[in-house]
Design a protein around this nucleic acid. Structure first.
Lengths: 83, 83
DNA sequence: ACTGAATATGCTGTTAGGCGTATAAAACTG
DNA sequence: CAGTTTTATACGCCTAACAGCATATTCAGT
């Protein structure tokens, strides 16, 4: 249930999944976070240039928090990358 | 050791602490992440408008990852630790 | 298929991020 | 305390985020 995030795309996907779990539309989330529905759409699509405060606003609206930690080696996509 | 991040300021502080643990200067980190030393300085100071891809670049250079999870309620004595 | 909701895309305007470059202010070190 | 390293600020430039507003497109329910 905790989502590992290493790329903008993973960030967008993770929050989209959680938003849907909460039963919210992009428009509803946007209203709660004081953002445009279009901004949510672009962010969830993996826009890397989304600003930190925008992401924070979304996380607050979804009642989430982030944890920063040393990189783990458990992600499936990483296997093979070193070779 | 894992850093809870709920605000831009906490994000900057957390990565600054980790950078120092790694024994890196802002200039060295900037070089590794292909950013300016000034950009690192501003980000660590808590700039909320820092872009996601900039943050990701810093985390990659520090060998870190993020986790997104439901907000937890930390004990009062823990709250100060994030600062 | 029809229809309304949800999501993606477009346009303009304002504001500001990050760049290169340079320097000022702090913080170590001998 | 001087000399060095590190961190914080500044200016001009280019690009784009996000705003409001509107519409096109896709999805889901009946």
């Amino acid at each position: 249930m905790d989502q590992i995030v290493r790329t903008p795309h993973q960030m967008g996907s993770a929050l989209r999944r959680i938003r849907r779990q909460r039963g919210l539309s992009q428009g509803e989330l946007a209203a709660r976070a004081h953002l445009r529905q279009a901004t949510i759409s672009e962010f969830e699509a993996g826009k890397g240039s989304t600003r930190l405060d925008t992401i924070i606003a979304i996380m607050v609206a979804l009642d989430l928090e982030m944890v920063v930690r040393p990189r783990t080696t458990s992600a499936p996509e990483d296997i093979g990358k070193a070779y």
